[in-house]
């Protein structure tokens, strides 16, 4: 399943896209530790698969939460995207 977490408001669209099918077989889940904001968490989804999701508390504040890792703040590559061995994570902005 492709899960898009985030929001769209007057300033733009901020979504993190996770291909949760890739999470099922991922044992180490390096994205969890890679994110300095601890955005991600492991949950059992509606189909009983253990997957990664963006924690509810962060879903409406992604633009601010991810700002420190964005190129404008000097980052070369997003740590969460770089950590995922399956390239299952993408930022839409």
């Amino acid at each position: 399943m492709i899960a898009n977490y985030g929001y769209q408001d007057g300033s733009g669209a901020y979504y993190i896209r996770i291909d949760t099918d890739c999470c099922i077989d991922c044992v180490s889940r390096p994205c969890l530790a890679a994110c300095p904001q601890r955005l991600f968490e492991v949950v059992v989804d509606d189909y009983d698969d253990e997957v990664i999701q963006v924690a509810e508390a962060h879903r409406r504040t992604l633009a601010a939460d991810c700002a420190a890792c964005k190129p404008a703040a000097g980052a070369v590559r997003l740590p969460c995207v770089a950590a995922c061995p399956s390239e299952a994570l993408k930022h839409d902005w």
């Binding site: 399943m1 492709i2 899960a3 898009n4 929001y7 769209q8 408001d9 007057g10 979504y15 509606d46 189909y47 879903r59 409406r60």
Partner: peptide
Amino acid sequence: GKVTQFLMNDKC
């Protein structure tokens, strides 16, 4: 009827 992709907006 199994979800393959979703997106929601509940901020606005």
